[in-house]
Amino acid sequence: MKTINATLINIYHICHRELWLHANGITMEHTSDVVYEGKLIGEESYPQRAEKNQELEILAELDGGIRASAKIDFFDAQKGIVHETKKSDAKERAHVAQVKFYLFLLRKNGIPAHYGIIEYPKLRTTERVDLPNDEMIEVENWIKDVSEIINREVCPPKLSVSKCRSCSYFDFCWSGEIEE
């Protein structure tokens, strides 16, 4: 049984094929300039944070033996606020899901987590993410769905090509099938 992490939750909300491939060791992010740029933005946008906030690794065991874990880069434990930095709001739904996953794991471990903030430094905007108690079961269901998808014998089908063009897996999935 594979451990479900925040990256898998994020990808789950974008593409089940990418989710399966990533979870099963076929990773393409290392070839993507977009992924690299996002990583740099996350590391360089708020250098003063290391002094005030703490990085936190957290784990939870769920029903059915499913393990969920996360490494939260910036958690303000005094205020109970998760901070997540993203390059753009292009995949906003996935970003929100990732922060809800962090809040879920924190609460499952008895750590006060009031809300999250997604920061988009390039856009100079932020978005508050709440996880009402009645949505905790929804996050748990995402985790169960991810576990089911990544443990399948067969890779899920591709999305339409229009949704795939900026994906780091584009060439892998569409090689030889697209006429330019």
Rank of each mutant, 00 (worst) to 15 (best):
I4D: 06
N5G: 10
L8A: 13
I9P: 02
Y12S: 07
Y12K: 10
H16Y: 04
R17G: 05
W20A: 04
L21T: 08
N24I: 03
G25S: 07
T27E: 15
H30F: 09
D33L: 11
Y36Q: 15
G38Y: 01
K39L: 10
L40D: 08
E44P: 01
E44Q: 15
Y46D: 14
P47F: 02
P47L: 04
A50F: 12
K52R: 13
N53Y: 15
L56K: 10
A60Y: 01
D63L: 04
D63P: 00
G65V: 02
G65Q: 04
I66C: 12
R67V: 11
I72L: 04
D76A: 11
A77Y: 03
I81P: 00
V82N: 09
H83D: 09
K86Q: 09
D89V: 00
A90P: 00
K91L: 13
E92S: 11
A94F: 05
H95A: 15
V96S: 08
A97H: 03
K100W: 05
K100S: 08
F101P: 00
L103A: 08
L103K: 07
F104N: 02
L105G: 02
K108A: 11
K108V: 01
K108H: 09
I111T: 02
Y115G: 00
I118D: 02
Y120M: 05
P121R: 11
T125M: 09
T126V: 03
R128F: 08
R128P: 00
V129G: 07
V129P: 01
D130I: 02
L131G: 04
N133L: 09
N133F: 05
E135A: 08
E135L: 07
N141Q: 14
N141D: 13
K144I: 09
D145K: 09
V146H: 04
V146I: 11
E148N: 13
I149T: 12
E153Q: 13
C155A: 15
C155G: 02
L159Q: 14
L159I: 07
S160Q: 12
S160C: 08
V161T: 07
K163C: 11
S166F: 07
C167W: 06
S168V: 00
S168P: 08
Y169L: 05
F172Y: 15
C173V: 06
E177N: 03
I178M: 10
E179K: 14
E179M: 11
